[in-house]
Design a protein around this nucleic acid. Structure first.
Length: 485
RNA sequence: GCCUCCAUGGUCAAGAGGUCAAGACGCUGCCCUCUCAAGGCAGAAUCAUGGGUUCAAUUCCCAUUGGAGGUGCCA
């Protein structure tokens, strides 16, 4: 075995890539890249019942979009393939039988129905059910082989010692140990000939020369059992790194069923992948010696250290993700911003009928998530209805009465403005305001309200007037003045 | 029930025996300002509880409580 670091992300194709999975993939990727090692994608599809059509392609797509490029995997090849477990199905029985021959496993002919019944009864009595090793004791290897040859259905179970302790060392959690008598004789090879996760992960991780096994903490309590398997084979166990889950709140995991967004959902809503990656990296992990929080993928590769991981579950905070997203949106080049914003803006207005570049310029610093854009600019295409109390501004002491005066004052100026540009609008009106005896804000607030109908707009009165154009601005102004009476 | 793991503000977190217990999001206020946003400044807000150990515990140990995971021919 070489000493190059090899890590693997091994999802099951059961649906979309959720954020917890994305984070596990990210850390696994960072671990490999940080050490100049290899990052591998393996598809764990041994449960045929749960497989969702198209899910494998979705995994490739999400990994690609997240920028988690893998060195080996089903769609990119590699020297340790195949990388899809069902394509490796012929491999597992051989190893399972090796364990049977060495006494570390045995054939079991008990029916699922029988065992389910036993389990139910045990559960009713409030005790933990464990398989009683009936077939280990009552069926000899010779008899087992004969029954199998006769076509009887069987599974192969791990023969866990009844005494002693089993444990393993985790990079994050340290040494974890359990009494063997609390461990069940898990099925290694199912009746359909496919391995269970319990077995496939051990065999594949070994065969693929994986050095660091990263996975969720749901495997923390069964990891000692996997180590028993490594021992039985005489294989060197990998380094383990179990990762706590990402939560929706303190008691619930993030889950599609509660409407929580997947990675794909966030992208579709207008979150940038850089923001998602950056944010998710910081969910349950913090770099040493820095208070900085904006990190590129390369920064993360350089900074990542499993010792900075937190052992408890982390709650996903949409607010903070949005804050990160706004930051990354502000950093976009104007061209890129316009490109990304265009489809959202086109939902409510005609880009050809407005100074689109200027609109984008005004919008970029105010966009938190692209999906908010339609609501932010709808007023440009269509004048919203509004109440006159919108003219009230406490700070500048603006009232509907003040507004009436202000509008009457700016109307002629606007009508005769020589040139409909922001500069000209600004300079002309600003120069005139002192004559009115009103404060700047007492003139400009009402004007902006009158032509936009909104308390908050992505720019001031001059920008809005410019974007709206002369005709629309004057039309709206007159309408609003009429409404004010 | 049993087994494993976890526990610093509302959230993400730094701190690893002696700290005024960092920082960020969010929140509040102020400044800037033709609105909003951005930016600047200020503020409120945390060591789950109880026992130990120690001259000294947020930090080490134990218990309790709370939470998570496991207890499948699911992963």
């Amino acid at each position: 075995m070489s000493d190059v670091v090899r890590t693997r992300f091994a999802p099951s194709p059961t649906g979309y890539l959720h954020l917890g999975g994305l984070r596990t993939a990210l850390y696994t990727y960072l671990l490999a890249r940080k050490h100049g090692g290899k990052f591998i994608l393996r598809i764990e599809d041994t449960d045929q019942e749960r497989e969702v059509p198209g899910a494998v392609d979705l995994i490739y797509k999400s990994m690609h979009e997240a920028g988690l490029d893998y060195d080996e995997g089903p769609d990119v090849g590699g020297d340790y393939g195949p990388y899809i477990q069902t394509q490796r199905r012929d491999l597992y029985p051989k190893y399972a039988w090796q364990l049977v021959e060495s006494g570390h496993a045995y054939c079991c002919f008990c029916t699922k129905e029988d065992l389910d019944q036993q389990r139910k009864e045990a559960e009713a009595k409030g005790i933990t059910w464990k398989y009683n090793k009936k077939c280990l004791h009552e069926v000899s290897l010779e008899e087992a082989k004969r029954r199998i040859a006769a076509g009887e259905s069987y599974v192969i179970r791990q023969n866990v010692p009844t005494t002693g302790k089993a444990g393993f060392d985790d990079l994050l959690y340290g040494h974890v140990e359990v009494d063997c008598d609390t461990l069940d004789d898990n099925v290694l090879l199912k009746a359909d000939g496919l391995p269970t996760y319990n077995f496939a992960n051990v065999v594949d991780d070994h065969l693929m020369a994986i050095t660091h096994v990263t996975r969720g903490t749901e495997y923390l309590s069964s990891a000692p059992k996997y180590n028993l398997l490594y021992e039985a084979f005489g294989w060197q166990p990998p380094l383990y790194l179990h990762l706590p889950p990402v939560m929706k709140d303190s008691t619930r995991k993030l889950s599609k069923r509660y409407g929580d967004p997947s990675f794909e959902d966030l992208l579709a809503q207008g979150y940038l992948k850089e923001a998602i990656i950056n944010f998710i990296a910081l969910l349950g992990w913090a770099p040493k010696d820095t208070n900085e929080e904006f990190f590129s993928k390369d920064d993360l590769i350089r900074l990542f250290d499993e010792r900075g991981l937190n052992k408890s579950p982390a709650i996903f905070d949409m607010n903070k993700l949005t804050y990160f997203n706004a930051h990354y949106i502000r950093e976009l080049s104007p061209e890129r911003y316009a490109e990304l914003a265009a489809p959202w803006l086109a939902q409510v207005l005609d880009p050809a009928r407005i100074d689109f570049a200027r609109l984008c310029e005004l919008l970029q610093g105010r966009t938190e998530v692209f999906s908010q854009l339609p609501d932010m600019v709808r007023f440009l295409a269509e004048m919203p209805a509004f109440e006159t109390d919108l003219y009230v501004n406490k700070k500048s002491k603006t009232t509907p009465d003040v507004a009436r005066q202000a509008l009457a004052f700016v109307e002629p100026i606007l009508t005769s403005i020589p040139e409909w540009t922001e500069t000209c609008l600004h300079d002309t009106i600003m120069a005139a305001i002192p004559e009115s005896g009103m404060k700047t804000s007492q003139v400009l607030w009402p004007l902006r309200i009158a032509i936009t109908g909104q308390a908050a707009t992505p720019g001031g009165a001059f920008e809005m007037a410019y974007l709206l154009g002369r005709e629309t601005t004057l039309q709206r102004l007159h309408d609003s003045m009429a409404a004010l009476g």
